[in-house]
């Protein structure tokens, strides 16, 4: 179970984060009032449909939003210190050193013109006071740790000389170079062959556990979440719909959207006779309905939902942004909604 105790001081705190894109057709709010914590050593899974804002959240945390995207509100704190408004140079020193990142596509994450050894030693020497020889020794050690055979020889090879899975191991080594406290892994295996996805996740999980590194793991794969994460955040239309302990969210979802999401996954669906899909699709950023963003698709929608936006409310062992929990009492079995052919409003 979680390496983190509930009362541990959070490593990362995201408070009321708001990210906007100023476009020609007006301001799009991609992330709206998102708050969550990550404890030291904890693995937080982040799930949600394409376009829900998972990557933008991760990018905002490492301070790499590109214009026209910008943080328009809220705070991001690392060990209690605000990092969202740091001068560029200060933030750069945190990236790679205290917060590492792994992106989706290993085939394109490495510079094709440099050997992996060059890219490793360059990163090591940026953050740690090491001589070239020491950095190289550390690089070889890291390559061995991520399971690259014959690292003394492979270190001088170029990225194109590695397979996709091997390249993602190199990317993991690069992210872990300076022993960061947090890794943001944005769909680290999506681009890989199914047969090696599990290996890479296992590797990432093991290394982070051994080093006490916390992980924000963005993925579409609920199986990976179930095996790896301590807690899960479910995102919908730039907001958090539900966040809670992994087993709770999977087996006892407290938000109708989460329930629908779980029911659509065969291996995890609880007491499902047939797979159900949530009807309709996530609203576009310029057409998010007032009140609860999920209300056009929600089987439980009622009056308040279309007028007032729900914030995260205590719901069992989780938090859910749903008015069904307004009175905070009724234990819900939302799984039913999606299991019996589902009567939709």
């Amino acid at each position: 179970m979680p390496a983190a105790t509930p009362d541990a001081k959070p490593l990362l705190q995201v408070k009321n984060l708001r990210v906007e894109f100023n476009t020609r057709r007006g301001t799009l709010v991609a992330i709206d009032d998102v708050s969550f914590d990550i404890a030291p050593g904890e693995v937080l899974g982040v799930v949600g449909e394409s376009g829900a804002g998972k990557s933008i959240t991760g990018t905002a945390i490492i301070g790499l939003l590109e214009p026209p995207g910008r943080i328009a509100g809220g705070e991001i704190l690392l060990e209690g210190m605000r990092i969202d408004n740091l001068p560029a140079e200060e933030m750069r020193k945190i990236r790679g050193r205290r917060i590492g990142a792994i992106f989706q596509d290993p085939l394109t994450s490495l510079n094709p013109l440099y050997t992996i050894g060059h890219q490793l030693t360059e990163t090591i020497q940026t953050h740690l006071a090491m001589s070239m020889a020491q950095a190289r020794a550390r690089a070889i050690e890291l390559l061995a740790e991520v399971g690259i055979p014959a690292p003394e020889r492979r270190i001088d090879h170029y990225p194109h000389q590695f397979s996709g899975g091997m390249r993602q191991r190199v990317v993991i080594a690069l992210a872990l170079c300076a022993n960061p406290q947090l890794i943001i892994a944005d769909e680290p295996t999506t681009a890989l062959d199914v047969s090696i996805q599990a290996q890479i996740i296992t590797l990432l999980k093991r290394l982070c556990r051994d080093n006490g590194t916390a992980v924000m793991l963005v993925t579409h794969d609920m199986g990976v979440i179930a095996e790896t994460a301590d807690r899960v955040a479910v995102m919908y239309a730039g907001r958090i719909a539900e966040i809670g302990p992994v087993q709770e969210v999977i087996h006892n979802p407290q938000h109708p959207y989460t329930a629908g999401l779980m029911a659509s996954i065969p291996a995890l669906g609880h007491e499902v006779e047939r797979l159900s899909q949530i009807e309709g699709s996530m609203p576009r950023l310029n057409a998010i309905p007032t009140g609860c963003a999920f209300n056009p698709r929600c089987p439980r929608v009622f009056g308040r939902c279309t007028v007032e936006r729900p914030s995260l409310l205590p719901a069992g062992k989780s938090l859910a942004a749903c008015w069904l929990h307004a009175e905070g009492s009724v234990p819900l079995d939302l799984n039913k909604d999606w299991s019996e052919g589902a009567v939709h409003a």
């Binding site: 590492g100 994450s109 510079n111």
Partner: peptide
């Protein structure tokens, strides 16, 4: 705009290293 530049930034390399070491060479 490439991924490896984004990743180089995410690794905390200095602007100089990213712009001239990585981007310019390519």
């Amino acid at each position: 705009r490439t991924d490896y530049i984004k990743f180089a930034r995410a690794r905390g390399l200095s602007d100089r290293a990213v712009n001239f070491g990585h981007a310019l060479k390519n």
